[in-house]
Amino acid sequence: MTTSSNTKTPWELLSRGILSENPIFRLALSMCPAVGISTTVMNGLMLGVAVLLVQVFSSVTISLFKNQIHPRIRIPTYTLTIATWVTVIDLVMAAYLPGAYAKMGIFIKLIVAFAIITMRLEMFACKENAADSFWDGVGMGLGFMVGMVVIGFVRELLGSGAILGYDVLGFKPLLFFILPSAGFFVVGLMMAFFNWVELVYKRRKGIQS
């Protein structure tokens, strides 16, 4: 490893994306798909994989060419890089996974406008080397995927009583959760839950010290 003293290990980069800077629950970025198509675990997983791939490819691309990009045109360069990779993923998914692609609708194409990807390029990939950018991209992508899968899990379980299409509960607790508008409620309640966990954690820590 030729990393300098202030760069982080792959594990730290990964865990940061999944936990402390989770794109959906902590940074509250890229909320549209989290509300719109997280009705099942499978949808969440598919879009998560697409975002992960776009994030990793764009991060590595920008990191490799960071010395050739003039700082004044960096934002347009990021946008075009992301757009190119989104086109690649979009065409690949349309060709090999037509069923899942039809369910995603326009959201695969809209990955191009995800704030989270541009933000990682601006804050991380344009300064660090390719290996670190790769792990940072994987971490952020996984964080997004985990968020999508968790929301999808809750909505699929409560809405249709199933996980990944397999019937687990045998009945449908609340059909409401399958409705698109329930996405707002699930995400809102989950954010409140994480806030509550944080509050309790801080209070415990305060008492101990």
Partner: peptide, 16 residues
């Protein structure tokens, strides 16, 4: 725990 974004999401859900 609901201050800020969580309550905004729930309001948006009701609008939806």
């Amino acid at each position: 725990t609901f201050k800020g974004l969580p309550i905004a999401f729930i309001v948006a859900g009701q609008f939806a």
